[in-house]
Amino acid sequence: MTASSNNKDLLTIAGKSYQSRLLVGTGKYKDLEETRLAIEASGAEIVTVAVRRTNIGQNPGEPNLLDVITPDKYTILPNTAGCYTAEDAVRTCRLARELLDGHKLVKLEVLGDQKTLYPDMEETLKAMKTLIADGFDVMVYCNDDPIAAKKLEDMGACAIMPLGSLIGSGLGILNPHNIRIIMESANIPVLVDAGVGTASDAAIAMEMGCEAVLMNTAIAAAKDPVLMASAMRKAIEAGREAYLAGRMPRKKYASASSPLEGLID
């Protein structure tokens, strides 16, 4: 039996359980059809969306993302991407809740600058406080600082999501040691959010013991996004199973796999 088909190995976030440990974004795709196909191939059950002004007058009949990625099939995770202050992030979450009929789960990200999209932890903590008081379930994008992560958990985050590397950079997990320290002390799911470039990065995150991985660009910016979505699904499953299986210890010298007895003279 594989871990992925084993119903007992579930990801639980804010009281709801999921089979898939891959969370995907919906940005940067060619069109809604490619979005739909890639997300289907990823097997993801939690899908992030952004909240933006509607077009005025242009393309009134334009299909809506939520007609393709429907809330009855997926857990929609609205993000606060593009917000640089706590105030804007809180406002975006409240709009998302109205948009999704009272939905409480949000992905909080408050960014520091446009060049790095690095989290502004001061503003993130400020937004966190308001959102928790307002009854939101908050999955929070953060830096890989164990102290900040602990503060977010203590404030009531339902998942901590440190970056592997900068959003959209595809550089992989640059500081696995910090992510390990964050996981050691966390009592809520720790997800790597941002930085995954290819399937091995996702597998490494899962082998380290991350509960799940959130990614967007690694799939959407691949030459064949649908195929990459499928690769990511397998990498997440493989990494999870390897984590559960427990890797062999590293050794300095060789250790023969074939028995040494009975060798012909």
Partner: peptide, 10 residues
């Protein structure tokens, strides 16, 4: 008046 909807994002 601000009118918003969901669009692709990560």
């Amino acid at each position: 008046v601000e009118i918003v909807h969901a669009i692709g994002g990560g």
